[in-house]
Design a protein around this nucleic acid. Structure first.
Lengths: 362, 362
DNA sequence: TTGTAAGCGTTATCAT
DNA sequence: ATGATAACGCTTACAA
């Protein structure tokens, strides 16, 4: 019951009273044709509502005019913007995007890429758990399918569009140092499966060390911790000696602010926070978020441009890392003079009591 | 230089020393085969690293195992979540998603859908400027390609997954009425090209009328207005008699809060605000956003499920509208007693002066 | 149980 | 300038 009415080039040729080759030539402007027959073919195609089958074309030309793109998530605005950037570049190019999101699962990465390959994509844009361990990416290379990575640091044999997470994280350490913080933490989700997060921590750690700060505490959250401010508050309570936290992304940073409010504490008075990504909403907050600004849209654009070059047989060499910028905000300030000046309005309830209260809420 | 190494089923057959039909039957478990040859074929396929070409299959079976999806934007979290919902449903189904975003442009809608059709998608998920005016959608129907709309109100001949924008907007009016507001506004982007926005305004307007409030003022913003709090502030200044604004989405609502801060006014003291969508971040704000909560993820899921049913030849009947819920927040309160109690700390500068100051900033 | 061959829609080659 | 035909990778009659 599906697909009635499929008009093929044969139909057009028959209607126009010519051979299929002629019809093809006319419709593609790919060869000679008398004005006579040209007219007839065009009329026939129009009358019949003909449009080419990309599948037939793909089979014959070995080009699908499709680019595959795999990202961990589309809900994360960082990736969504990157994809948007990709789209904007592809728009005029004749290529279309086949998008898949892995939900941050390495296994899904593999399956989806294989699927993309079987669909004959002409190129691959990817942000995966681990490019170097991906057999599917290896397979793509074997088949000589152009690949551009996004968000990943440069890696042997791949080209990538990225910000230098390590360097950006060093800047965060410098900012904290500048504000006299010594006891810092790094808050992240999925530390083990995100090279971005690991690189950020590494850079942060290295620069803290270099500047003589304490080693930053690594705090890895579960999905649930991150999504429920109450739970996050409980976690943060356990680290009340820290005066500053570097959040691996802006959402976490915003969640921290919320959690601190639940604890009757204030940002930046009781805890300074710096985020990462520079999402737009950070600017609109009552307490504008200090963060590392990046440009995922541009990242997507760069990756897509490089990929197109490669597809067209050009070199598509590795571009330098994209710029980042520290955007200051009201979430960072010097630490309180010292822990004894509890002149806060809200009394600090004993931890265990507070914990119960919070749990009952959640 | 591309696509070296393409292993086809012919190669497998040759390597296994059998005919292609046999290889196909083995690899698909679609017919008889001796244990002997079965083994050989499997080994050959494995050794050669064979994988099927979806293109070849699509051409022969007239099924691409691909579903096309068109949304106005992926950066808008509402659509991103819907797409995520779609993906989650499609995940186990064998169908893959071909995504396109139109950037809210009706012309792009048409082109992209046609492109999708030429790629032989087996079904279409769409959120477009105007389903009823879309020739491309008409074409899809002509070809008997199943379609599910998302976000659109029910429309003759289409099935859709949606929330009842009209009803939801009435609830907003009721809330404002309950808090004694009489002078309200409706703030939106792209009023003319978004049926959602129009339906929301219609419902809001109708219920305001029914409850005896003033007719709500329709305020349509340009992209620039919405993205720059300073500009938005200028706009809002022009409507200082309003005591409550219904923002067509949560981002606008958050932007209003920011703009009011720039004007040295406060939400909800000087202006009550209710948003739409219920994005997560609204909860995390210092002043949690009152809004209409919807579930775009579920919307995507429903649309995808219905579409799959249709593709498989089942009925896929229209589902009822998805539920929405008013989520109260700190952005709504009764209007100030009256305009003369200017006991604010910040003096209200004369409009013209303020305007200049703001413009210099932006 | 197995293999040969037709056909899906297109384009390129090669005669005419 | 035009048209017949092979080829792309696959599945499915059909024949053996």
């Amino acid at each position: 019951m599906h697909q009635i009415n499929k008009i093929t080039i044969k139909d057009v040729a028959r209607e126009a009273g010519c051979g299929v080759a002629t019809a093809s030539r006319v419709l593609n402007n790919s060869g000679p044709a008398s004005a006579q027959v040209r007219e007839k073919v065009e009329k026939a195609a129009h009358d019949l509502g003909f449009s080419f089958s990309a599948i037939g074309r793909a089979l014959q030309s070995n080009k699908s005019m499709t680019v595959g793109c795999i990202v961990p998530s589309l809900v994360n605005p960082v990736f969504a913007e990157a994809v948007q950037g990709v789209q904007s570049v592809l728009l005029g190019s004749g290529y279309q995007l086949l998008i898949a999101s892995s939900n941050y699962e390495a296994k899904a990465d593999e399956e989806l890429i294989e699927n993309l390959l079987s669909k004959g994509v002409d190129g691959l844009l990817a942000t995966v758990a681990s490019p170097s361990l991906s057999n599917a990416l290896k397979l793509a290379k074997t088949r000589n399918i152009p690949i551009s990575l996004m968000f990943h640091d440069p890696l042997d044999g791949f080209s990538t569009a990225y910000v230098d997470n390590f360097e950006a994280a060093r800047e965060v350490a410098r900012q904290f140092a500048h504000y006299q913080h010594r006891k810092t933490g790094f808050l992240t989700l999925r530390f083990s499966s995100s090279d971005r997060s690991r690189n950020r921590y590494a850079g942060f750690h290295a620069e803290c060390k270099a500047l003589g700060l304490n080693d930053p505490i690594l705090i890895e959250l579960s999905e649930a911790d991150a999504n429920m401010p109450q739970k996050l508050a409980l976690v943060l309570e356990g680290y009340s000696d820290l005066t500053a936290i570097f959040a691996s992304n802006d959402f976490l940073a915003i969640a921290i602010q919320k959690a601190m409010r639940l604890l009757n504490k204030r940002v930046p008075h009781d805890l300074s926070v710096i985020g990462f990504d520079g999402i737009e909403i950070g600017r609109l907050l009552e307490v504008p978020l200090a963060t590392i600004e990046t440009d995922p849209d541009k990242m997507g654009q760069q990756a897509a441009k490089t990929l197109l070059k490669k597809i067209q047989g050009e070199v598509g060499e590795q571009q330098p890392s994209l710029p980042f910028k520290f955007r200051t905000g009201a979430t960072i300030a010097p630490p309180r003079a010292n822990s004894h000046d509890d002149d806060q309005v809200a009394p600090r309830s004993p931890s265990i009591h507070l914990t119960k209260r919070l749990l009952n809420k959640g």
